[in-house]
Design a protein around this nucleic acid. Sequence first.
RNA 1: GGAGACGUCGCAUAGUCCGGUCGAGUGCACCACCCUGCUAAGGUGGAGUCCCCUUAAUGGGGACCGAGGGUUCAAAUCCCUCCGUCUCCGCCA
Length: 398
Amino acid sequence: MELVDEAVAADAARRSSIQEFETLRAEQNAFGKSVAKAAKDEKAALVAQAQELAARVKAAQQAVTDAEAAFTRIVGSLGNITIDGVPEGGEDDWTLVREHGTPASFDFEPRDHADLGELLGAIDIARGVKVSGSRFYFLRGVGARLELALMNLGLDRALQAGFTPLITPTLVRPEIMAGTGFLGEHADEVYHLDKDDDLYLTGTSEVALAGYHSDEIIDLSNGPLRYAGWSTCYRREAGSAGKDNRGILRVHQFNKLEMFSYVLPEDAQAEHERLLGWQEGMLQACELAYRVIDVAAGDLGSSAARKYDVEAWVPTQGTYRELTSTSNCTTYQARRLDIRHRTESGRTAPVATLNGTLATTRWLVAILETHQQADGSVRVPDALRPYLGGLELLEPVA
RNA sequence: GGAGACGUCGCAUAGUCCGGUCGAGUGCACCACCCUGCUAAGGUGGAGUCCCCUUAAUGGGGACCGAGGGUUCAAAUCCCUCCGUCUCCGCCA
């Protein structure tokens, strides 16, 4: 509340400094013309006057620069405004939207994905740690193939829905990182190269996908612009020491196929539901039990106005774990990145941006655990088989 | 990495040496109107973005010649830094 008052005050200060500067500048412009035209003998006196005026203009200009910097800083620290209906509260105050499918049950003791990954020769955590440290891993053999299969299934479904595929840069400039809202309170989650290169490693291709149309006026008259971005994602996982240490549920590096939509602000909520629908379709194709939750306002981060998490049942944890999430960022990112469309009256106005995840490496956790059999083999869901050369069963390596 | 050239209003360009008459000319594309009966041409006018003030619609002012500084009464034009593009050479997946 105080922050909003501060922002309003900063805006008022900014406006009045602009007015002062512009009045002086107009005076200077007019004066300059008369200096140029003046006769020789009058010139010296006029220049002396102009010098004095120039000093005042310069001071006024500096005041504008300062006032605008202060305004930008305060406004930049404001989070997005949540949409009506979003539950109030923090991390645990989400509301259930729906559940789908029945959590897997077994007539044997199920193995967790780390054990299964080792048994199948699919996930090599020990060597990941040896090479890169904790929370790193190798996907190998059927693990690597399953990952690619998942990404390709997601991509094909995205193509069917009309998305344009993009393979995005994973190193971005500071202003793009800031524009997407990732340098706010969670800045310590982001890898930053600062020795020789002032670039950030992105934790999601959402960053590059949002930056793609930055500083542009885009044409939405033929409907939304939809991109499916594939990239490797990097997260520092600072502050999560000791949490989800086992397996690949929480890692520093993973792959992700991300949907990203640019839409008219009035279409944002409908698009959000569509993104959620495509995500659920993907979970269903992988034959996973899941639930959809409406994330509470306090857990939204700075850029989302509403966020749905889709959580899949993870048998050995006896609970649902987030596999995907879709956010409606309304005009928050577009304002910061200066992405606009032209309205019917010919004016420009910010667009709305939304994102949603179609697949990530984390999905392997739920897929392996859900479809495991007593002997440690894993049944491949029908939809994935074409992407695995028809393979129906992942079998333990000798 | 070495050497050089360049970055102007949608596109293409003029202007930069010799700072004010340049917020900026021309061509193409675009929009409106006019003209012409003929498959296209001619004429007139208008057009960008951002910000501030003002209004019922309007009007006024400011900023923007890659970005940021500097010199100057005054910068597209002079100086510096950065970013980017292109050409040649070297190196490399």
